[in-house]
């Protein structure tokens, strides 16, 4: 178990290193940092001075080393726009995004699993088929368009829900959260639903497929032959089996949701780090872009590690293999 963990950690460090190389090359080689840092009217001498000051006359590997050392100390540069450390900016915006993404995860599980169970247990019923038909929409509709439609219907036409911003927030652990106030929750309904739609469809389909796959299995028939109640067969025997793939996929999708929050946050003007990155790309605020990318890659790696650990906890077969 420990050697396995160690191996995973080393792997994670390597992926992280690879990403720093990619991001460094992307920002400093493909794009020219001087272009944005220096006014176009600057003369040759001024340019040269800036190049030397930024260390851009040094060999590439030396520049990279400096960048890496800075990154390790949490220094990813200062935002040109806000004139604040980029990492601090990201950290300020992160709670809003995490709150949105985790709410969406919760929604996809709470809505997706029951609907999927129903569609799996009664595949030929009208309701079961309707659930499946509608779930296709959840996959293929462009999320930003769904967001616009939500705003058009529930904010503009019906006036039920606020369309933009986080609303009122309350403090918990020194961080501002929307889900702690009624007004904040009202602001969260539409963005969270919008973000969750694809995942609801995904969880629903996974659950249904799992039920369809497990129901004909001998262990289900044997459980029924033991005379235990049908609800126990479904909710203990079948559900425990299909939870393994669902937890894995949902876990891995958290990263996807955080990334995809970029779209939702832009549509609903939700002040999270997704909105920040879009604004930063539009004004070429490179330090913020770099900080965001490094942050999200780190998040991804951490999430993947946690999911792998969870997987071993859930599936006794994997647990044993890893012990040995």
């Amino acid at each position: 178990m420990t050697t396995w963990m160690l191996r995973r950690l080393i792997q994670a460090v390597f992926v992280m290193l690879a990403m720093t190389v990619i991001v460094f090359i992307g920002v400093n080689v493909i794009g020219d940092p001087i272009e944005i840092l220096i006014s176009p009217e600057a003369d040759q001498a001024e340019r040269a001075r800036a190049v030397a000051a930024l260390g851009l006359d040094k060999p590439l590997w030396e520049q990279y080393w400096k960048f890496l050392l800075g990154a390790l100390q949490g220094d990813l540069g200062r935002s040109f726009v806000f004139n604040e450390p980029a990492l601090k900016l990201i950290a300020q915006r992160m709670p809003a995004t995490l709150e949105l993404a985790l709410t969406a995860v919760l929604m996809s599980v709470v809505i997706g699993i029951p609907l999927g169970l129903y569609a799996g247990l009664k595949p030929s019923s009208l309701a079961g088929r309707t659930i499946m038909g509608v779930s296709i929409l959840g996959f293929s509709l462009p999320s930003f368009w769904v967001g616009l439609m939500l705003i058009m219907v529930f904010a503009v036409q019906l006036g039920w829900l606020p369309s933009t911003g986080r609303g009122q927030t309350a403090e918990l652990f020194g961080v501002q959260w929307s889900f702690l106030t009624a007004n904040g929750l009202a602001h969260m309904v539409m963005p969270a639903t919008n973000l969750a739609l694809g995942n609801i469809a995904l969880v629903l389909r996974l659950t249904r497929a799992g039920v369809r796959e497990n129901l004909p299995m001998d262990y289900v028939k044997f459980a029924r032959a033991k005379g235990i109640s049908p609800s126990r067969v479904v909710f203990v025997h079948v559900l425990k089996n299909i939870m393994i793939p669902i937890v894995t996929v949902v876990g891995l999708e958290i990263g996807g949701l955080i990334a995809f929050a970029v779209v939702t946050e832009s549509v609903f003007a939700w002040p999270g780090m997704g909105k920040l990155i879009i604004d930063s790309i539009n004004v070429l605020d490179r330090p913020v872009i770099v900080a965001y990318l490094m942050m999200i890659v780190l998040l991804f790696i951490v999430i993947n590690l946690i999911v792998d650990l969870l997987y071993t906890v859930l599936d006794p077969r994997v647990r044993l293999e890893n012990k040995e």
Binding site: D218, Y219, A223, A225, K226, K240
Partner: peptide, 29 residues
């Protein structure tokens, strides 16, 4: 079922639920 009439299945690999402990599967019966 399982009370007055019991059944033993053909395939031993598949009749027990792979993710539940033996005690769970026996006690529930």
């Amino acid at each position: 079922r399982g009370n007055r009439i019991a059944m033993i299945f053909q395939d031993p690999m598949m009749t027990l639920n792979p993710v539940l402990r033996i005690d769970t599967q026996m006690i529930e019966t």
